[in-house]
Design a protein around this nucleic acid. Sequence first.
DNA 1: GCGAAAATATAACGAACGTCCGTTATACAT
DNA 2: ATGTATAACGGACGTTCGTTATATTTTCGC
Lengths: 231, 231
Amino acid sequence: MERPSLESFTARHHLDSRSLCAQIVEAREGAIAVRSAQAATDNLTRIIEATLRLANRKGFAAMTLRELARESGLSLGGLYAYIGSKDELARLIQAWVSRTLRRVMASALEDIDDSRSRLATAIEAHLLTTEALREWFFFLYMEAHHLASDERRQAVAAERNSEQIFADIIRQGQADGHYGAMNADIAAGLVKAMLQDWYLKRHKHGERGLDVAAYADTVTAATEALLATRA
Amino acid sequence: MERPSLESFTARHHLDSRSLCAQIVEAREGAIAVRSAQAATDNLTRIIEATLRLANRKGFAAMTLRELARESGLSLGGLYAYIGSKDELARLIQAWVSRTLRRVMASALEDIDDSRSRLATAIEAHLLTTEALREWFFFLYMEAHHLASDERRQAVAAERNSEQIFADIIRQGQADGHYGAMNADIAAGLVKAMLQDWYLKRHKHGERGLDVAAYADTVTAATEALLATRA
DNA sequence: GCGAAAATATAACGAACGTCCGTTATACAT
DNA sequence: ATGTATAACGGACGTTCGTTATATTTTCGC
């Protein structure tokens, strides 16, 4: 199976801001005061993209709604046709990026049985997803700690879930005799740390001329090497 | 050489909040309006520890000086005997945690020549330092993006510097024939990602019953395995 | 144990925040 | 061409922010 390019992966899984915003508009039917789904999606996309731009630069708490209005092109009052409050805006973004990762990982892994293929595919899918929605994931990581306890618990659960996917693959590989006896949860944690570094330190990787496919190869090779050891 | 415990390492390198605050008081001679260095250190320690507690829970921007006064036990106006402004408080913490890591890494590595010993020592020193000053490092990581451009550049430079230490060790090991030909900068980046995961996801590791020494062994083994490959 | 000096507490300021609401502009139907 | 539903605007409200000026308490040499 040939490897997907970032573009084809993005298109296949609808990993662009507008697609996510369209889903949000649909799911929040009634909570948004604008009737036309088309226009609502347009404006919500501008609001959320502006939020990611501002919040990732100076922090969500430090971003004011006046800045957001200016940056998104809407008026201050106009924002409230799309969001119930500033806090709800953060919760919206976080909830949707979490469920998008879960959806894409599940989709990318279905019909793949061999444990080593699953490992490489999972690493690649994680990296491509976070690359396509880089600002969304950066926002989730940086702001998740400040959520109220309910949403925070949900974000932690999503994180655990994605790590669990890797741990399960590793255990399968160990059962198949491909990997040594290293603790699968700890190994999965190391993999997750390397994967998150991709979108957390994007600027550094860009300067090095490392692209997402090359980084996927590197992380996969590193993980295979790590798992080959008989700890 | 026997491995240092967290306690002995902390004591040897003065990695407690009060020691750092004492250094800050000394360095800021004149900027603090309280004459007694002893009393000034006491209060500054309470201020900074309260800042780390509040800011790491809800974010520095969302933390108010009224909360900080309550949490630290000082009055609102009294805070200004120790800090010039709220922003300066953040800059103080960030600057001192950066230079502390640099100082400790240099100190831990001196007199160690063998590249494989240097790698294990550097990994261990990094983990023990961030473990001893966990809240400080968490604060640095989470708030560094929001600094003004000057201080931001300084924080990025400190991060590069610590990564460079690992890259240099890896290059030395490659020259000595211990390691394969993998790109040293990229490998150092992966190591750094695993090291930072320790203090960024502290709660998770605690739940797993993983202590800092065991994690050091895991990361060292993973790095050795990774570097053994002939990419 | 008294008075100057140092340290802390209290109170107040202007600015800026999130939110809301009366009004105006636009689009579609009649 | 007129009337009605829809969307967006932008200023004002009450609150809370960081900061500073003033008052009070504590400390300590004599």
